[in-house]
């Protein structure tokens, strides 16, 4: 399946955010939930199982100056095998203008056995924009070895590179489960917080979670590995 979804947020002139465009296609449907006031809240509703290998899903997000959007998902995505030798792909391209804020807080990506999945995110932040961006990967369903999944995240701040990271798990990624990468942890993830109003804090480590101030802007990356999805979420529940 191919699907394209788009979300555009603007200030409504009364201190709130209005979505001037909100459209999607099965299996990538967007639903706004009522309330919220200053921040518009949108849920990604998977209209079908998957993604399955061969699916090509694209989401564009545009947050205009001063607007604020929070994106959640109703359920985890489970990347599954599909067409032989095909890749499932989820591409998100987000642009956040000065004074805008995007909180991207979806559910986990579960890399099921035999999957071949690529999650590609590209975020362009103007100087003065704010971002919360969560990525979580669960390597296989319960007791299962995962297929191949790559989560690629590319974020710029004020035209400068802020974060480039590509996490690969599964049979396509040599050494991924070993002591240099995940050390056997089936769950891993990161939370990127970009906020020019927050004071810079030093790096710190607690067990298998680290707080890492980035070089390219007013940003902190929290990164963690965990024995399960719940522990991972607790590690990243910092914002």
């Amino acid at each position: 399946m191919r699907a394209y979804a788009r979300l555009v947020a603007r200030v409504d002139g009364r201190g709130g955010t209005v979505l001037t465009e909100l459209r999607g296609e099965t299996p990538l449907l967007l639903r706004q939930t009522p309330g919220g006031g200053r921040v518009a809240t949108v849920y990604v509703v998977g209209g079908a199982a998957g993604p399955l290998a061969g699916d090509d899903l694209r989401l564009e997000i545009d947050v205009e100056p001063g607007a604020a959007v929070r994106v959640h998902a109703v359920a985890a995505s489970v990347a599954l095998p599909g067409r032989p030798d095909a890749l499932s792909r989820m591409a998100v391209h987000a642009v956040v203008h000065d004074g805008g804020a995007l909180h991207w807080l979806p559910e986990q990506l579960v890399a099921a056995a035999g999957c071949a999945h690529l999650a590609e995110s590209r975020v362009e932040l103007a100087a003065g924009a704010r971002l919360t961006w969560r990525d979580e990967v669960i390597c296989g369903r319960y007791g299962e070895a995962p297929g191949s999944a790559v989560v690629h995240t590319r974020v710029d701040y004020g035209g400068r590179p802020l974060l480039r990271q590509s996490l690969a798990v599964g049979p396509g990624a040599p050494g991924w489960a070993g002591p240099a990468v995940l050390g056997g942890a089936p769950a891993t993830g990161s939370l990127l917080v970009v906020d020019p109003s927050l004071p810079a804090e030093p790096a710190s480590v607690e067990g298998t979670r680290a707080r890492l101030p980035l070089a390219g802007g007013p940003a902190t990356l929290w990164t963690a590995t965990a024995p399960d999805a719940h522990t991972l979420r607790a590690h990243l529940d910092v914002a």
């Binding site: 590509s166 996490l167 050390g183």
Partner: peptide
């Protein structure tokens, strides 16, 4: 340059910050 490899290793980052202390 923006397309050069960016392969990440969470434990390398976590270990490095622990080691630095």
């Amino acid at each position: 340059p923006e397309r050069l490899p960016a392969a990440a290793a969470p434990l390398a980052d976590i270990h490095a910050e622990a080691h630095a202390t």
